Amino acid sequence: MLLLSREDIKKVFTIKDAIEADKKAFQLVVEGKCDAPLRTNIQAPKHDGCFLFMPAYVEEMDTASLKIINIFPHNIDNGIPSSPAQVLLIDGSTGIVTAVLDGTYVTQLRTGAASGAAFDVLARKDARIGALIGTGGQAATQLEAMMAARDLEEVRVYDMNYERTVDFAARMQEELKDYGTKIVAVRSSDEAVEGADLLITVTPSSKPVFDGTKVKAGATVSCVGAYQHHMQEMDPRILTRASKIYFDSEEAVLSESGDILIPLEEGIITKDDFTGDLGDVIKGKVTGRENDEEIIVFETVGVATQDLVAAKEIYEKAVAAGVGTQWN
């Protein structure tokens, strides 16, 4: 069994690799080629947390996986990841676990890459300004995926804690300097959102974190954080302005995301307003962006297929490069 740490993964797998892996995963989802039951969610109310178990199996790849990811949002206050995780990669022909990967980093990569895939497929080609709301454990790869998908001049970052926002922006400016993008900490979500071509929200908020009336025409919005029914980062007013609404998986989104479930329950939107899954756009079965004025919304809650495809590709690259630690 191969043990792959964050540093091992970084040696062989980039955010651009992760974006391409997510595209494959989203196609497998819409083709029905992955058996991935909706994740088991066990609540830990004492700590405002939860334990998530995400299995997946792709017969044609002879590969299965299990991700154990535990969401504890208060961890950020103690300087530890808010979503610690491991991914077990399993040989589909023998049932033997072939690798254990740092699931925290796999999750960060594949979750950021979901926004990157959506922007790559749906965003205006001339997008120049990005906005990121949230600076927690998922934020760094969301930011890099945005910059990998489009050649951005500037990304504005907002979080309720301004000091943390400044520290995050400075750290990211150094780590991602090769992109040549200016990363700026701002004091309000309005300042982040106004004029932005790309917007990512990645917070655990239970109320909207931006004003949907301030999003510009032509913008592409990716909302990432609302993985439970009571969570709602997205201002529902953006849904009434949007020309198209896409998902990583409609089934998964409708099983848990307050961003969509709450507006549905309140009658702000109906299922007739949904455009389709990103995998169908990639396959050419569903229309993507049709003009530069459309506001496009992408809601993602994450599916286990993403973990499986990413883990499989990381493992193969690591074996080829001789990276990782063997454990018997």
Rank of each mutant, 00 (worst) to 15 (best):
G32K: 08
G32T: 11
G32R: 08
G32P: 05
K33W: 05
K33E: 10
K33N: 08
D35A: 12
D35N: 13
D35H: 13
D35K: 15
D35T: 14
L38D: 04
L38C: 05
L38K: 10
R39Y: 07
R39H: 09
R39I: 03
R39Q: 09
N41K: 14
N41Q: 12
I42M: 11
I42N: 09
I42G: 05
A44R: 12
P45T: 11
P45L: 10
P45N: 08
K46T: 12
K46A: 15
D48K: 15
D48I: 12
G49R: 09
F53I: 14
F53L: 14
F53K: 06
F53V: 14
M54P: 02
M54D: 01
M54R: 08
P55C: 07
A56F: 06
Y57A: 10
V58W: 00
E59L: 07
E60V: 07
D62V: 07
T63S: 14
T63C: 15
A64D: 01
S65E: 08
L66E: 06
L66S: 05
L66Y: 10
K67C: 06
I68A: 12
I68L: 13
I71N: 05
F72D: 02
H74D: 13
H74F: 13
N75E: 04
I76N: 09
I76C: 04
D77K: 15
N78R: 13
N78T: 09
N78Q: 12
G79C: 07
G79Y: 11
I80N: 03
I80A: 04
P81T: 13
P81A: 11
S82F: 06
S83K: 10
P84E: 01
P84T: 07
A85L: 09
Q86N: 12
Q86A: 14
Q86V: 15
Q86W: 07
V87H: 04
I90D: 03
D91I: 05
G92L: 06
G92F: 07
S93T: 15
G95A: 03
G95M: 02
V97T: 15
V97D: 04
V97L: 05
V97C: 11
T98G: 12
T98H: 11
A99M: 08
A99G: 11
A99N: 11
A99P: 00
V100P: 01
L101N: 02
L101H: 08
D102A: 07
G103Q: 04
T104S: 09
V106D: 04
T107G: 05
Q108P: 00
L109C: 10
R110S: 03
T111Q: 01
A114D: 00
A114M: 03
A117Q: 02
A117W: 00
A118T: 03
A118R: 01
F119K: 02
V121T: 14
V121I: 15
L122N: 01
A123C: 03
R124V: 04
K125C: 01
D126G: 00
D126A: 09
R128I: 07
I129H: 08
I129Q: 06
I133T: 10
G134H: 06
T135D: 02
T135P: 00
T135L: 03
T135A: 06
G136K: 07
G137E: 02
A140T: 08
A140S: 13
T141G: 01
T141K: 14
E144M: 05
A145N: 02
A145S: 12
M146W: 05
M147K: 03
A148M: 06
A148P: 01
A149C: 00
D151L: 12
D151Y: 08
L152A: 04
E153D: 14
E153V: 11
